[in-house]
């Protein structure tokens, strides 16, 4: 049962992991001053954001493309066809939205200095 709910919520859970990872690593690296240049840039932060975004986005994409395999991994055998269609559809839509949210959050790292305050 828990596996079924994790399957449905896979996308948002991955999004939460991504946000925690990118915000946590950026805050810690900037606060500790590790790798920060005088203009506020920080390549370590940039790469941590890229990596912390690509991994969950990749897992999320796999879940969308292979729902049966991911369900088997998390919850075991599938129920009846109508229930499976609902679970798969909800998971795919949620995961798609989550990938969009991950991409949107990560995009900032491309345009903004990683540790500078904007004002």
């Amino acid at each position: 049962m828990v596996g079924t709910f994790v399957f449905i919520l896979a996308g948002p859970i991955l999004w939460a992991i991504q946000l925690t990872a990118i915000y946590g690593s950026q805050s810690a690296l900037c606060a500790a001053g590790i790798g920060t240049s005088s203009g506020g840039g920080n390549a370590l932060v940039l790469w941590s954001v890229v990596i912390a975004s690509l991994i969950p986005a990749g897992v999320a994409t796999w879940a969308i493309l292979a729902p049966a395999a991911s369900y088997r991994l998390l919850a075991g055998e599938r129920g009846d066809a109508a229930q499976w269609g609902f679970l798969r559809g909800v998971m795919r839509l949620l995961t798609g939205l989550s990938i969009l949210a991950m991409a949107y959050a990560a995009l900032g790292a491309v345009f903004l200095p990683e540790c500078a305050s904007l004002r």
């Binding site: 915000y23 950026q26 805050s27 939205l97 969009l100 790292a109 903004l112 200095p113 990683e114 904007l118």
Partner: peptide, 20 residues
């Protein structure tokens, strides 16, 4: 006074929630 990139993360999430 939070760094600009942190603001971007949360600005993105704030707009993403408008979709659902």
């Amino acid at each position: 006074g939070i760094p600009g990139l942190s603001l971007a993360f949360f600005s993105a999430a704030s707009m993403a929630v408008a979709i659902p």
